[in-house]
Amino acid sequence: MRSNNFVERSIAGMLFFLKDTIFSEECALRKGFLQSLDPRVKIASFFLFILQALLSGSIRPLLFLYAFSLCLVLISRINLGLFLRRTWIFIPLFSLFIALPAVFGPGEALFSWHILGIGFVATRQGLGAAAIFVARVITCVSFVVLLSLTTKHFELLKVLRIFKIPQIFITILGMCYRYIYLFIGIIQNAYLAIKSRIGVGVKYRQGQDIVGWHIVSLWERSVGLNEEVYKAMLSRGYQGEPVVWNDFKTRGRDYFWLTTVVAIIWII
């Protein structure tokens, strides 16, 4: 029973996470400052911020950029708690474990302790380097999360065109994004259908079979859908190279924002 509950919780958790993080777009639909910018300008400016964070050798500009990203969170009507949770969750994963050994690097000793007879000495230079590393990661992650929260995903895809990525790849990515949601619904319903017929008391071996059949069935549906969607594209005149509607507009506030960003980077 425990293992079944674990599987059920895992599936439900994964699907909820996908729906919540990828498909909710709740923040991107709010009328905030970053949401009002041309996505192309927003991406260019965030790219400059991230580049600046990567090139900064001292902690002050990094802390300034991080504080600035928090101000952007507030004027873009994003819940600060949600934003901090989304960003700080990455820190132990991507930087803390890497930065920790640096604390004990060569330099002026600050404090020391012993564990199982092994001595550890934290140094001023080591702590400084670790702090810069963590600040750099949190600043970069903050701008990336801020970008994904305030921009609709299909707009992010469309902006990929400015990086000269072929339209066919962008169209395929867009279709994946569109149909993942459909398949999430199918997985959820299939799981409920299985549960309604056989309950939760499934033996390990039987459970493996069910998951196997389900994967095959999903694959078959995906292939069938693929053929039908292609027919639907042909039916509306698709001839191998998709033509798309580009309705991005750059306005006065976008130029003002870009000038401000360049000025900030110049100053720090």
């Binding site: 299909f154 867009g174 149909y179 594209m233 509306r236 005149g237 001839q239 998709p242 033509v243 798309v244």
Partner: peptide, 15 residues
């Protein structure tokens, strides 16, 4: 099959 309603509607005439 497009990400938004507008893109779906205009897909045909654009092609």
């Amino acid at each position: 099959f497009c990400p938004t309603v507008k893109e779906d509607i205009v897909f045909g005439p654009l092609q």
